[in-house]
Amino acid sequence: IMSYAPDEVIIIGGPDAVVEQYVSDLQELGITVERWGGQNRYQTNIIAMERAEVEFQLQFNGSVIVAGNDTLAIRNALQLAVQNGAVIIYVNKSTNVTGVMEKLRVKTATMVKTQASERVMERVKEQLRECNCTAAEVQVNVTRETVLQLMVQVRERVKTIEEIANETNSTQLMQQVRVMEMTMEKANTALQAGNYTRAYQLMLELQIQTEFGLKMANGEMKAMMEINKKVALEREIAKLEAQISVMERAGIDVSSITALMEELKVMVQNGQYDEAKELMNQIKAMIRDAYQNGRQAIRDSAQKTHGMRPSRP
């Protein structure tokens, strides 16, 4: 996020989905943070649609694109929503679709279906009939590439959970990792056999498992950091080094900050945790000032690297 040097950031999702640490990290840099989040992802979805309409003056065309808890369906639904200026709603088997349609004041819906979300979409279709809404269907088939893309995402999550499990010596997390790896093997076997639908369904199940696993892992790490000052300081140091690296790549002079970072590492290694905390607060203030004064340089660097400049939609 810092590499784009934004003035403000909107977080979409509650604190379980996007942990509060993101908020404090960004605010420490002087970035304004706003959170759009509900009790679950379905509430968050509606809140995001409503807030985007006000915040960015988005104009919707009076129709909605409906997708289930299904990565492939969501990806295609997003494309259709952008192309047609439609609202996208994300549903599961317990969603009150009729209520959502009434809330959004729309009567036309397009349902995006895959083999993994057919039952949910049948229920959606029934509810749409009840509110006298017009419903069209788009069928999207699971392919080998679809499964492979999801595997990459899920493997990264499993790897992260495993790293935290090793760092916190959590037996429970390691057991979860082993179960996840077994499910991954089953999905890979189905993929190699050409049963893409089965492989995809297993990966969707694993995607949900990793979401819960990451929440648990974050909780374990937070608890460990509360009782282990060295671990907490070392993780903060890693974050600060990443922030310094962003500014360094943009050509900002961070030599004085880098020198203090070396002193900080020595303090931590020597067990001078209280002194280290004081020096860390000083370094954070210096990073904040350097970031605030060098935002344009960071933006210029981002434009050269990514071919884009951060801006409001």
Rank of each mutant, 00 (worst) to 15 (best):
S3A: 08
I12S: 00
G13W: 01
P15N: 09
D16V: 01
V18Q: 00
V23M: 05
V23A: 02
Q27C: 06
Q43N: 09
Q43G: 08
I47T: 00
M49G: 04
E50V: 06
A52N: 00
V54R: 14
V54S: 15
Q57P: 02
N61V: 09
N61Y: 05
R75H: 06
N76E: 14
Q79S: 14
A86F: 04
V87I: 05
Y90W: 11
V91Q: 06
T95W: 07
T98I: 13
V100F: 09
E102T: 06
E102K: 12
M111P: 02
K113W: 08
E122L: 14
K125D: 11
E130S: 10
C133L: 05
A136S: 14
A136Y: 13
E137F: 09
N141F: 03
L148N: 04
M151A: 13
R155D: 08
E156F: 02
E156G: 09
E162Q: 09
S170I: 09
L173Y: 13
M174G: 01
M174L: 10
M174F: 06
Q176H: 02
V177A: 01
R178D: 15
V179I: 06
M180Y: 12
M180S: 13
E181I: 01
N188V: 07
T189P: 05
A190E: 03
N195F: 10
T197I: 05
G213D: 03
M225V: 11
M225Y: 09
A238M: 12
V246P: 04
M247W: 07
R249L: 14
S255Q: 13
S256Y: 01
I257L: 02
M261F: 12
V266Q: 10
M267E: 03
N270F: 14
N270W: 12
G271E: 05
E275G: 10
A276F: 03
K277I: 15
E278D: 12
Q282Y: 04
K284V: 04
A285D: 07
A285T: 07
A297K: 10
I298H: 00
R299A: 05
D300M: 08
D300L: 13
S301W: 00
T305V: 08
R312W: 11
